[in-house]
Design a binder for these strands. Sequence first.
DNA 1: AATAAATATGTCAAATCTGACATTTTGTCA
DNA 2: TGACAAAATGTCAGATTTGACATATTTATT
Lengths: 102, 102
Amino acid sequence: MDKKKKKLLETKGFKVGSVDEFLGLSREESEYIELKLALSQSLTETRKKKKPTQAQLAKMINSSQSRVAKMEKGDPSVSVDLLVKSLLAIGVDKKSIAKAIA
Amino acid sequence: MDKKKKKLLETKGFKVGSVDEFLGLSREESEYIELKLALSQSLTETRKKKKPTQAQLAKMINSSQSRVAKMEKGDPSVSVDLLVKSLLAIGVDKKSIAKAIA
DNA sequence: AATAAATATGTCAAATCTGACATTTTGTCA
DNA sequence: TGACAAAATGTCAGATTTGACATATTTATT
């Protein structure tokens, strides 16, 4: 799949609402992006609720501030795996993850 | 996290039910494993319902039969990303994915 | 039982993702 | 305004994941 497109859409401006078929995105592509955005948002929300800074969260999940920033920004270099692991690490359970992406 | 443990638990025998604290697994670890297993199972189920063989599915998602087999078996070398992408490719939508892991 | 079809397992080079670091931008408070 | 903290962005070597292939095992079909 075209990385440019993905990068474009995962960037500011498209945080909210559905990206369905904005540009020739297939159903799978847009759902995948939406799913990642949902996880990103959930991570940001949860972190802010719980208090810590990106740097502190980074320590909890032994990662780095810059990677946390990328996660929260929906950077294409971040995998769903990492998002899920981070959410679990920060105390969000499966059920809540499911709710976030539903 | 200990890869041996993960490998062990993701192997036959533990497809059903909760793996919580069987061996010293943390909450995050067990939830992560359970989440992956849920996706694996969902993939197998959906594929069988929809008809194609692993080889045919592999083509649809341009992967290979062997990797599909690993996905369905919950092999540790398979990422959540790939599982999610495969589910989406086979026609399962976000909502159903959410339901599967809830 | 024999054959074929489907699935499982092992391996590996190439591709992707990762933490870490440096640097820049944005936000906050005096 | 300036100075300080938090967040964002770029880069990259090392780690992990990938498709592909070979091969073995299981399952169906005759």
